[in-house]
Nucleic acid binder design. Structure first.
Length: 116
DNA sequence: GGAGTGACAGTTG
DNA sequence: GCAACTGCCACTC
């Protein structure tokens, strides 16, 4: 499979699936990791479709403010928050506390020359 | 084939 | 320092 052939969507899934438990990241980091920092919106859109896949922990992806913007997309309840808290991430009012502490940057933790 | 939408980010006033 | 606007790429209708 050629990465070039893969759509932004597919790559986003691979990155999100590699997010370690107890860690969270933001759309910009993923988009930048894919080489399209300005396309953070696409990442969000990808999450919209990825939320249908159980293999993609979309709950670990939050916006720049650490706000669980996609919470409503999970099931309309605080499921997303519960999942994060279950992993050790402190969430308050649909927002990740100490985001900096739980922040996980694919550009720093992962290498572009991975299986992806 | 064209226009509109979208779980954002970065920049400017 | 805070608030608001634009840009951006992919997907759906």
């Amino acid at each position: 499979m050629k990465p070039e052939t893969l759509h932004f969507f597919d790559r986003v899934y691979e990155v999100v699936k590699q997010i370690p438990s107890g860690k969270v990241t933001n759309y910009g980091a993923i988009a930048r990791y894919l080489g399209a920092a300005k396309s953070a919106r696409i990442v969000g859109y990808a999450m919209n479709a990825s939320h249908n896949m159980d293999d993609v922990p979309a709950h670990r992806v939050v916006n720049r403010n650490g706000l669980l913007t996609g919470k409503f997309h999970f099931d309309g309840t605080n499921l997303m928050q519960q999942l994060l808290e279950n992993e050790g991430v402190e969430v308050k009012n649909n927002q990740v506390k100490n985001l900096k502490d739980y922040y996980w940057d694919p550009n720093e933790e992962l290498n572009l020359h991975d299986t992806i």
